[in-house]
Amino acid sequence: MKAIRIIGKRLLLIPISVFALVTLCFALVQIIPGDPAITVAGSYASPQEIARVRTELGLDRPWHERYLAYVGGLLQGDLGRSLFTGRPITSELARRVPATLQLITLALLVSWILGLSLGVAGAYFRGSWPDRVTRGMITVLQSVPDFLLSLLLIFVLYFMWQLAPAPVGQLGLSSFTPGPTGFLLIDTLLRGDMATFLQALHHLMLPVLSLGIVYSAYLGRVGRSSMTKAMQSRQVEFARACGLPEWRVVQYAFLEARAPILTYTAILFGALVGGASITETIFAWQGVGQWGLESILKVDIPVIQGVILVSGMVSILVYLFLDVLVMLLDPRVRYE
C-alpha cells in the first residue's frame, strides 16, 4: 500500500535528521573561538580548573575520538553531566521535558482556538469588515514579542486584577513531587489531588495565554490563507448549491484546508520546545528552554548539547507524527 511506503520513507528520514542533529550538537564546542576550556572555565579560573574542564570536555583528545565517545554515550542514553552541578543531564531532562511539553501543548491549543477562529472568520467574511478586523488583529498579534506580552499579562492579570498567581513556576510553594509521568496535570489527576491540579492549572494560565496568543497569529495566517482558498473551491460552491447549511459548508472547506494547518502546527510545536524558553524564564517554569538559556549564559556545554538534542528530537518526532496523520486522514493518499 502506498501509505505504508510513504510512512517508511519518512521513517528513513529520522536517522538522517538525528545524525545531523547529533553532529551539530557536537560541533557546538568547535565554534567557540580561542580555547574553549578557557571560555568555559572563565578568564579568572586557575590553570588546574582549566585543565579539569579540558579533560571533562575531552578537549585533550583528537576530535574524531571525542565524536565517537559522544555518540557512544548517547546510544547508552548518557548525555553527560552538567559542568556546574555535576548532575546527570538525562535525569534533569526527565523532570524538565514534561513541564515544557505540558506548557506548549496547552499553548498550542489556545493558539488553535484563537488563531483558527480569526483565520476562518477572515476567510469566510472575505472582503467585508470582519475580514479587515481579523486581519488587523493578526498583524498586531504578529508584532508582539512573546516576552512583552508575558510581562503585560503579569501586570494586568496578576498585579492589577489579581486573577493569576505570581510568576513563580509551575506550582509555587507546594510539597507535590511529580510522578509517575512528570506531567503535573496528569500526575495530580492520577493521584486524585484535585487541589494541586487546580493550582497547577492556575499557574499555567499566564504562560499558556501569552504563548497561545502570540502564536495564534501564525495559525491565523495559515488558517486564513488555506481557508480562503478552500472557500473559493468548486466543492464548497457545490455544497452551497446543494443547500447545505453554512456551518456544514465551512466544515467542508475546513476538511480541504486542514492539511497545511496541521503541518504548520507540527512546525510550531517543534519551534516552541526551544521557543518557549524566554516565557519559561519569565515564569520561572524550570522547563527545557529555560535550562538551555541559563546554560548558554554559563557556557555549560554538555547541558546546551543535551537541550538542543532533546528539543530537536521532539520536533522531529512531532513533525513525523503529524505528517503521517495528515496522510492517513486524506483518502487520496490512503487508498492509492
Binding site: 528520514l13 538522517i16 535528521s17 545531523a20 542533529l21 551539530l24 512546525i267 517543534g270 519551534a271 520546545v273 526551544g274 521557543g275 524558553s277 524566554i278 528552554g289 538551555g292 538559556l293 548558554i296 546546551i304 537541550v307 538542543i308 528539543s311 530537536g312 520536533s315 522531529i316 513533525y319
Partner: peptide, 12 residues
C-alpha cells in the same frame, strides 16, 4: 531538518 532545531537557543 534544520527547521527541526530549536533556533532561538541555537541563535543565543
Amino acid at each position: 531538518v534544520f527547521q527541526a532545531f530549536p533556533l532561538v537557543i541555537i541563535g543565543t
